[in-house]
Amino acid sequence: MTPLVDAARTIADSVLFPAALDVDRTGTIPDSHWQALADAGLYGIAAPAALGGPGLQLPDLIAILENVAGGCLATAFTWVQHHGALASLSASTNTALRDELVPGLIAGRIRAGVAFAGAVPIPPRMNAQRIPDGWRLSGHAPFVSGWGIIDVLQVSAVDADTGDIIAGIVPAGGTPGITDVTAQPLFVADATRTVSLDVDGLVIADERIVSRVTRAEFMANQNFGSRLNGTLPIGVTLRCAQQLDAAGRTDAAAAITADADAVRERLDSGLAESTMLLQARAEGAALAVRAASAVVANAGGAALLRSSPAQLLARNATFTLVAASRPELKKSLVEQFSRSRG
């Protein structure tokens, strides 16, 4: 493991988790969280070494994401979107845009978010029309996290003529063509500042386009993103195991940790096959719910107090059931939770 993994673990244990209840209560992530991640070099983890990033191998990247997710889920979910945009820009053939933004993204001086969900469904929620020197977007992005926190947003839309997926960078806030921004109050991780966006006539010039890919290529990239999202329930699960271990439930903690390790292996094995990956993601989310339930049960009635980490972990686990979900993932989870154990 690299020093960045150790840094992520230290920040999660000493900065993020001790403040997680306050973040949940106030609905605000302090700027000091972002600064701690930036100072540790954790804003650039998705960038290759050739562009000034650490060039991490997948196990280290996964370990970092799991640690941050186990520290503060709201912080992790907002911050993980940044790496989707950074990875896309790092691989972009638009070298001028890449060279303009990537150094600031790596340093954490520029914070990025993504809005790709509008391009995933068929028919798409977000469409792109070719115009001279650019693209005009229209449609709806149902969940965009980090509004008011991020500086730039990578928006994906479907070219109505070819079915290709267009991704471009726009300022996050006050952009002509974003006609409505509606807050989406959440019962957990509300500090992610999640909104929905309505778009009508959002123009993205060619020089701000990150990529144009086929739908097959786009969905392949989504598979990798889905693997990264699989770190969220594992991070919550491992934090639950730590809580149980600290309470003297060492056998329970060890069993949950072993289950998390097994799910992680299945997530990695599923990188090349989306059906396997989504099944493993469902197993991870179900494990997080089970682990959090063990923490609640062990804490007893005190777990119902707003001051208890147990109730926050239980709600965090629920969040992982639906975050970055897909119909197949939803189906698998419903089947798991409704299946008779008799």
Rank of each mutant, 00 (worst) to 15 (best):
I149P: 08
G148D: 07
D133I: 08
V170T: 07
V170R: 02
Q184F: 12
I131G: 05
A141G: 05
G177M: 13
S211Y: 06
P142G: 01
P176N: 12
L197T: 15
V155T: 14
V144E: 02
Q154R: 13
G173D: 04
S138N: 12
R212G: 03
Q184P: 12
G134V: 11
S211V: 12
G168M: 01
L186D: 02
G163M: 03
L153W: 03
T179I: 14
G177H: 07
T192A: 05
A183D: 08
V181P: 00
R136Q: 14
A189M: 05
G139P: 09
A160Q: 13
I209P: 04
D151G: 14
A172R: 07
T194G: 15
R130M: 04
T192K: 04
S196Y: 08
G174S: 12
I204M: 03
A183M: 06
T179D: 03
L202P: 00
T175L: 03
D161S: 15
D151N: 13
G168H: 05
I165N: 07
A160N: 13
L186W: 00
S196H: 06
V158W: 11
T182I: 15
P185Q: 02
T179G: 05
W135M: 02
G148I: 05
M126F: 10
G148Q: 05
G201N: 09
G174T: 08
V213D: 01
A189Q: 01
G174A: 09
G168C: 06
S211G: 11
F143N: 14
R130T: 14
I169F: 12
L137N: 00
V155Y: 08
V199E: 01
A160Y: 03
A141N: 04
D198S: 14
I169S: 10
F143E: 11
P176V: 14
G146P: 01
I131H: 04
A167C: 15
G201D: 04
A205D: 10
L186N: 01
V188R: 06
A160D: 09
I209D: 07
G146S: 01
Q184Y: 10
L202G: 02
W147C: 09
V152E: 01
T175M: 06
P142C: 01
L202D: 01
P171K: 11
R136D: 08
S145K: 05
T182H: 11
L153C: 04
S196D: 07
D200T: 06
A172E: 06
A160I: 06
S156F: 08
T179L: 07
S196R: 11
T182F: 15
V181L: 00
D198G: 06
D198P: 03
N127Q: 12
D133Q: 14
R130L: 05
T175W: 04
A191Q: 00
S138T: 13
A183V: 13
I169A: 08
I169P: 03
R130S: 11
A189D: 06
N127E: 12
T192D: 01
V195G: 07
V203A: 04
A128S: 03
G148E: 03
P185C: 03
E207S: 14
A167P: 02
V213M: 07
D190M: 08
N127P: 06
R212F: 05
G146A: 05
T179F: 06
V213C: 05
I209N: 08
G134P: 09
D190A: 11
V195I: 13
R215S: 09
I131F: 08
G174E: 07
F143Y: 14
L153T: 02
A157I: 09
A141Q: 10
V210Y: 06
T214S: 15
I165L: 12
W147T: 09
L197H: 09
